[in-house]
């Protein structure tokens, strides 16, 4: 009986074994390396390591306002993405979930921005935001608001939001696809039943869709947080973190510390701290979601 139980549990482990093996081989060593390097002043090239204790971390926490400023920028973009981008994705998913005309076509079109390569996205949006020949300024002039026109990526008041808009435009397709899959997984019978009970569209959304979709909402919001906090390509293709430090994000700081300044060890320390912050945020999210589901 006892042996049977042990065999049962071992059998259960077999399911996670392949994932665990890959993780142990390909993730543990790099993780260990990063932690090890974070307490050195390694330059990325030389063969010997020079251990300096927690000096990198102490400097990061006490003497690196630029990094924490970049963190604030990332939070700002993340907040926008969590709200605007995800509501847009949800709205579009809800519309495409119904049997509307051309639904299939829309489904494909909304996935285009994620598919497009960063080069095209950078070129297009640099052109849209351009100060002299930009589409946005042309449009503003057309509707009589030329007073507002400017070089959107170069103005300290608009650079960050301009970059956020690109990020959200490029990213909503991901959320859209996941949310649509979630919506499609909801048994149609539940809607039918609600409809027979005389529920209107809002009531059905509130009492059928939302409760069943909460896990998917959590999933999408965690992915949004992780994806947005680690935003990088778009910044490099448009502002390079400028003007000044107005669009710097943690990853641009880590990369410029690692490559620009050849402070590899310090960059690893930044990576560790940043990773732990992301981990903490995700844990809080997961905890909160568990509480919400119990209610």
């Amino acid at each position: 009986m006892n042996l049977h139980r042990v065999r049962h549990i071992v059998g259960n482990y077999v399911f996670v074994l392949p994932a665990l093996l890959l993780f142990l081989i390909f993730s543990i060593y790099p993780f260990y390396k990063v932690f090890q390097l974070s307490i050195t002043d390694w330059d990325g090239i030389s063969p010997q390591l020079n251990y300096i204790g927690l000096a990198n971390f102490i400097d990061l926490f006490t003497d690196n306002p630029v990094f924490w400023h970049s963190m604030r920028n990332a939070f700002y973009v993340t907040f926008l993405a969590l709200t605007v981008q995800n509501f847009l994705a949800l709205g579009l998913a809800l519309l495409c979930d119904r049997d509307i005309k051309g639904g299939n076509v829309y489904r494909v079109i909304f996935y285009l921005p994620p598919v497009l390569s960063g080069i095209v996205v950078g070129l297009i949006w640099n052109w849209i935001y351009d100060g002299n020949y930009g589409l946005l300024n042309h449009f503003l002039a057309f509707i009589g608001l030329e007073d507002l026109s400017r070089a959107w990526l170069a103005d300290s008041r608009t650079a960050l939001i301009a970059v956020s808009i690109i990020h959200m435009w490029k990213g909503f397709g991901w959320g859209f696809v996941i949310l649509l899959a979630g919506l499609q997984s909801i048994p149609r019978e539940l809607y039918e039943a609600a409809r027979v009970d005389g529920a209107n569209a809002w009531v059905m959304f509130r009492h059928v869709t939302v409760p069943l979709m909460i896990p998917v909402f959590i999933l999408v919001s965690i992915l949004t947080i992780l994806g947005t906090m680690q935003v990088f390509d778009i910044i490099i293709a448009t502002t390079g973190g400028g003007p000044g430090y107005h669009t710097e994000v943690p990853i641009t700081r880590i990369v410029s510390t690692m490559i620009g300044s050849s402070k590899f060890g310090y960059a690893c320390a930044m990576g560790v701290v940043f990773g732990l912050i992301l981990l903490a945020i995700s844990m809080v999210q997961i905890k909160a979601s568990k509480m919400m589901r119990q209610v």
Binding site: G131, L153, A237, T238, G240, P243
Partner: peptide, 12 residues
């Protein structure tokens, strides 16, 4: 300076 030069990438 041309508008936007402060954050322009060199290819632009």
């Amino acid at each position: 300076f041309v508008d936007g030069a402060v954050t322009m990438v060199n290819k632009t």
